[in-house]
Write a protein that binds this DNA or RNA. Structure first.
Length: 274
DNA sequence: CCAGTATCCTGCAGGC
DNA sequence: TGCCTGCAGGATACTG
């Protein structure tokens, strides 16, 4: 589930624990994720290294280690990054545990295994097959001047286009639905058919909804949790996602569920227009 | 190149 | 209660 706000929630939490801490041990018996990585490679990279301020690009969490490189983590659909310091037993589906100086353990738990872990040597982000293809981060202040032009070139639905990480990184299914509702744009409308003015508005709504979700600690549907296990509260603010049959908060019409590009899509058939 | 489809994996909710 | 089906925050390797 984790989209930009959930990953940013995790990043902010880690920012209070990681910087300055060094790695005592790495347990990675079975990192069988979408991108397999050898445990001994992670151990060699991390043990003895010292974490710096955590970063993020789109849905990728970037954890730089001083003078060594960067541990890049993608949470996929069901990934959680947990932090504990009381000797807690690792829960099922734990793929990676990083034991830190002073006690805390950072663990990656991911039942569905759609997540990914990568080790980036200095400067290697440009060569990484996934990272190098990402568009600008969805919260990039320059986005409003970049994205509308890109969107106008695409013939696919505006919803699938918003979720294309090569164009803009960080928007997933929940926030694509919510931003389109706010902008009153029909998710199936071809991106290139929408006026520049409305696309401009859409980009503003994208950034606004992401920022508000971060304020609430993200959205928890089922799997997502912060590093301490707490749920994100933005679910309470969702206008359309998961609200099939409920009244549109703006006009009262019944929210409809459909499928676009294989993903559940929620819209108000009355106030969202092509 | 671009657009659309199929697939990876596990857990859970709902229907019968 | 128990089985079966469908569905879930994502990305990418295919096909046409």
């Amino acid at each position: 589930m984790p989209e930009l706000p959930e990953v940013e929630t995790v990043r902010r939490a880690l920012a209070g624990h990681l910087p300055g801490r060094s790695v005592l041990a790495v347990r990675a018996a079975a990192v069988r994720l979408r991108r397999p990585i050898r445990p001994d490679q992670l151990q060699k990279a991390l043990i003895g290294g010292r974490f710096l301020e955590p970063n993020r690009h789109g849905k990728w969490l970037l954890l730089p280690v001083a003078d060594r490189g960067t541990l890049a983590i993608h949470l996929g659909m069901s990934g959680r990054l947990r932090l504990w310091d009381d000797g807690t037993q690792a829960p099922p589906h734990t793929h990676l545990e990083v034991e830190l100086d002073g006690g805390p353990v950072m663990a990656l738990v991911d039942p569905r295994r759609f997540g990914a872990v990568a080790w980036l040597a200095p400067g290697a982000a440009d060569d990484d097959p996934a990272l190098s293809r990402l568009g600008p981060d969805a919260l990039d202040p320059a986005l409003p001047s970049l994205l509308p032009g890109e969107l106008r070139r695409r013939r696919t639905s505006i919803k699938a286009t918003l979720m294309d990480q090569r164009l803009v990184a960080g928007i997933g299914n929940i926030y694509a639905n919510e931003a389109l509702w706010r902008a009153r744009i029909h998710p199936a409308a071809p991106a290139g058919s929408i006026s520049r003015r409305r696309l401009q508005l859409l980009v503003d709504h994208v950034q606004a909804v992401l920022a508000e979700a971060i304020e609430r600690g993200g959205t928890t549907l089922r799997d997502f949790a912060g590093v301490d296990g707490t749920a994100g509260m933005f679910r309470l603010e969702l206008a359309v996602y998961g609200e099939e049959g409920e009244p549109c908060p703006r006009c009262g019409a019944s929210i409809r569920r459909t499928v676009i590009a294989q993903r559940a899509t929620y819209l108000c058939p009355r106030c969202q227009r092509r």
